Simulated scan of single mutants.
Amino acid sequence: MSRRIALFSIWLLFVNYTMWLAPLDRPDTWPLVQKLLTLQWGKVNAIIAVIFSLMGVWPMIFACLMFFDGRMQNFRAWPYFLGANGTGVICLLPYLFLRDRHQEFSGKKDKLLRILDKRSTGVALLLSTIALFAYAIIAGDWVDYIQQFQTQHFVHLISIDFCLMCLVFPIATLFDDDMARRGIDDRRIYWAVALFPLFGPLLYLCLRPPLPEISPKVVEARQMASLTSSKL
């Protein structure tokens, strides 16, 4: 419950902060967004272009967890995923604090779930992120970025949004439940992921074992039942 309250508080504060700054009302917002969407990165500070791109990587990281979790909820995960690609944590957080905890997965994995479950998907996201960071380091202008962070509301908000994505990943019980579904009970793995923002979750996607279509708990229960019946 305390995690749910924390996530709701973060969401409420950021929504109000965004409404107060109102970046869409600023004349300098849409020209910048258009350049970012049309990949005119030569006309934009590389650091801003990378942060904008990473705000597309983060929803994919969460998708690799929440689409399995959405099978067990009373509401679908995909509207929140789609919204997160446009508004970041504003659309993502409601899913995280409204969901109920489920540490089992039942049923068959469809084509989408099989793709999201592959370690190669995590590797692709990790390599893309490394390439983006390299581009920011080589071509980015930190003095200009700090100035734009202080003066342009859109740059200010997407930067904070990126930091909030890093913050809410370990806070949300979604990560704990995904570990439990895969039979991972080593808390050192949790802290290793939590203490390394962005790259920790990416490495987790690269290294986590595939999710069985029948949960480990069900398999264990069936084995126990079989063992009991054989003794009788």
Rank of each mutant, 00 (worst) to 15 (best):
R188C: 03
R26K: 15
G107A: 00
K43Q: 11
G140K: 04
I61L: 09
H102P: 14
R76S: 12
A134N: 12
A172V: 01
M19L: 13
I137W: 12
K231Q: 15
G183W: 07
R26A: 14
W41G: 10
C163V: 09
V123K: 09
Y135H: 13
L113Y: 02
I115P: 09
P216H: 07
R3W: 06
I171W: 05
A194R: 09
A139L: 14
D178I: 00
I146W: 09
V15P: 05
V89M: 02
L116H: 02
S120D: 12
V218H: 03
R181H: 05
L82D: 03
G200F: 06
Q147H: 11
P212S: 03
Q73V: 10
M55T: 14
D25C: 08
V44A: 02
M19G: 08
C64Y: 09
R101W: 12
T29A: 03
A131E: 04
F97M: 04
K108N: 10
D69L: 11
T87P: 07
W41V: 05
R114D: 10
R182C: 03
I47S: 03
Y80H: 11
C166H: 07
I138H: 14
L39H: 11
A46M: 08
I48R: 11
T173F: 07
P212H: 07
L113D: 06
Y190N: 00
G107D: 00
I160C: 05
V219C: 14
W30R: 04
S159W: 05
C206R: 09
E220H: 05
G83Q: 07
N85L: 14
P201C: 05
T173Y: 10
A77Q: 08
F68Y: 04
S120G: 10
D110F: 01
Q73N: 08
V89D: 03
G88P: 03
L7D: 07
L65W: 05
P216A: 09
A180P: 07
W142E: 08
P23N: 01
A136Q: 00
L13A: 15
A84L: 02
A22W: 09
R71S: 09
W58D: 07
D141W: 08
C166E: 08
M19V: 13
F81N: 13
F175I: 03
F81I: 12
D100L: 10
H153L: 08
M1E: 15
D28Q: 06
I138K: 13
F199G: 07
I146Q: 13
V193A: 09
L164N: 00
T121C: 06
R181D: 06
P59W: 00
L36D: 04
D177H: 03
I184Y: 08
M165R: 06
R182G: 03
